[in-house]
Design a protein around this nucleic acid. Sequence first.
DNA 1: AATGAATGAGACTTCATTCAT
DNA 2: AATGAATGAAGTCTCATTCAT
Lengths: 208, 208, 208, 208
Amino acid sequence: MATSRASSVLAARVTPGASVHANSRAPQLLDAAAQLFCRHGYEGTTVRDIARAVGMLPGSLYCHFATKEDLLVAVYLRGVEQICAAVQSAVQPLTEPWARLEAACVAHLESILRDDAYARVVVRVRPADVPAAAGSMTVERNRYEAMWSSLLAELPLPPRTDRKAARLMLLGALNWSQNWYRPDGGATPRKLARQFTALLRQGLENPA
Amino acid sequence: MATSRASSVLAARVTPGASVHANSRAPQLLDAAAQLFCRHGYEGTTVRDIARAVGMLPGSLYCHFATKEDLLVAVYLRGVEQICAAVQSAVQPLTEPWARLEAACVAHLESILRDDAYARVVVRVRPADVPAAAGSMTVERNRYEAMWSSLLAELPLPPRTDRKAARLMLLGALNWSQNWYRPDGGATPRKLARQFTALLRQGLENPA
Amino acid sequence: MATSRASSVLAARVTPGASVHANSRAPQLLDAAAQLFCRHGYEGTTVRDIARAVGMLPGSLYCHFATKEDLLVAVYLRGVEQICAAVQSAVQPLTEPWARLEAACVAHLESILRDDAYARVVVRVRPADVPAAAGSMTVERNRYEAMWSSLLAELPLPPRTDRKAARLMLLGALNWSQNWYRPDGGATPRKLARQFTALLRQGLENPA
Amino acid sequence: MATSRASSVLAARVTPGASVHANSRAPQLLDAAAQLFCRHGYEGTTVRDIARAVGMLPGSLYCHFATKEDLLVAVYLRGVEQICAAVQSAVQPLTEPWARLEAACVAHLESILRDDAYARVVVRVRPADVPAAAGSMTVERNRYEAMWSSLLAELPLPPRTDRKAARLMLLGALNWSQNWYRPDGGATPRKLARQFTALLRQGLENPA
DNA sequence: AATGAATGAGACTTCATTCAT
DNA sequence: AATGAATGAAGTCTCATTCAT
């Protein structure tokens, strides 16, 4: 995860002319930005911080990204890409709907809690806080949520079940864990994901 | 909710000597700060914004609060106070544990989505983003979460049930709703709270 | 000329709240800006330069003017005010139309070449070069040109005389002198103004 | 006008070794610079703008011109060359001194208002604003003004006529028209030039 | 001849805070 | 309790220029 290869879809958003040379440092910048955005938030990170993290002067950053917001969008976009990929490759080998949902939860939680700085940013940074980037961010986020709608649609459930509420509850619980989860103590992301899935499926009153 | 009386516990944090007079404008400042913090976040709100909102100059604000962080702490503290009060008064008339839990969820969600700018701040602003205030904020937040631990402890559940996981799931789902809830369309906070409680209790496979 | 008293019409453009205290340094800033704008142009002057000229830090300047453009507008506005005043008080005691025109030329030229840094800015800085300020500047400049239209309207001239062309020629010649006039060598502004007026009146072939 | 061949006198100022090849893109750069300098001024034009206008990257521009100032000097020099040529070829077929002066005015005004981006720069950009280029620019400008001195010297005028004042007035009026002339409304450059010449010759009181 | 990347200085502006009055 | 002014650090971004390839 958090690899350093700029995907083609990302290249479309960087300053024109960049990433033609093979030795571009745009990927390093992206990585640094992802790390810093997910650790300190968007406003809590300065372009100086990002530039320093890759040994550049602040002005040089603008060879690769036209604005700080563009950097955020690029990180965000790749975050969605990567978390989508993680979830999809976790789900793909499975066919049983509940197993697929559980696998998705595990992949999601491992991404946003442990593996993937880019994916963390997707959960950490609120689109509304960065107006100039909110549009693109929301488009991406919706793309991801659509995946979850599909996963829930697969479940064999009683008619009239409000699947949307279930999705909002599940994803909310998962995402909010970023606010309290500490990697050292307690449960692993995997275990948590399984617990939440089980709760959603059977409820507190009907243990497995 | 969102009353304008500065509680004594707040007075302890303001500029020494201030807020002894009855006609202090500290309460107005607190209200304005709560509104702005919950709407734009802590970093997205400037001292100027707050001062302007009450018709003051920025410098004058420092007659009432020593720093911006102190203002945040005061708001946060009152937010916890108020959401505690809301939950407690919703729960108090009830005795059945599940009904109490549901009532708590409704009170919580109505507070953080609709009624109470102070309570919103508690969910909106991450302690880690404001190091100088993180300590006090965390203490308060823990106080609130303890209430929820009690509510869950009351529930008649099979032995070995992981009540902590349930609490984290439920509160996470509730809190995260701040990120997607829109007051105009769809469900009310009350309805959402009930759905989430029901899901937690019986799961998707065992509809009420 | 170039006095340090901020007129009421200027105060309206200054950051709200300024110039209530008697010891505001806004007038000094205005003076410094006028000097620097007329010497190095708008783009050639930095806010640092202006602040340094009055012994301030660059940020402090923003207590008095919200933007660099606002400073320019304030200077420009006062420049027009002052050159209007200079021309009007030169013209007022006279009744003979040609004498009034000549006096106006003298006042204009002395203002923009010698006396008045504010007035110089009016001739020096092109509105189109500062888009954010162009509107206000043009309004003011038109106000001034209207005065000249009146002066030319008074002249007893053959019917069908194109007074507008005459105005454009005269004012153009006067204003352009900023590009070549050197205070040390040659003619005084007064002498030049008289020569231009005479030429315009009688032409090269009909010397006085 | 505004031809694309770099004259030998220009080559002397470009980066050593450049522009020896026939397919150099220096002429395109020169054209682009002339367009941009005359439209937005020297400071209002960036090296990036110029490079972009010819589909180059900023760094590549330095294969042809050592500095931005050199570009300006090259444009300016060619501007003077071209306006000289325009005036001279307008004047040459004529012998009557006043007719020659009028033709010169028409050629001058058409160049700086309509035809010739290079010539426009000569009027638009003040040497004093670009210290490193001021020397060369002033030399060129003086060369041009000498032409006008000759034209005025030819006129049959009463003794003791101040021909220099007349030249300054006429050229000033012509040049300043760049500040107010709009190609759409009103008079053509040709008509204006004739009006100004007539005014200078006979004055307002002695219409033709 | 041209490129992509980087430099380094400096641009305007914001902001929490201080302080004499 | 409040003001107007100022501070000082830091913010994002621009720009002419350089240089290895």
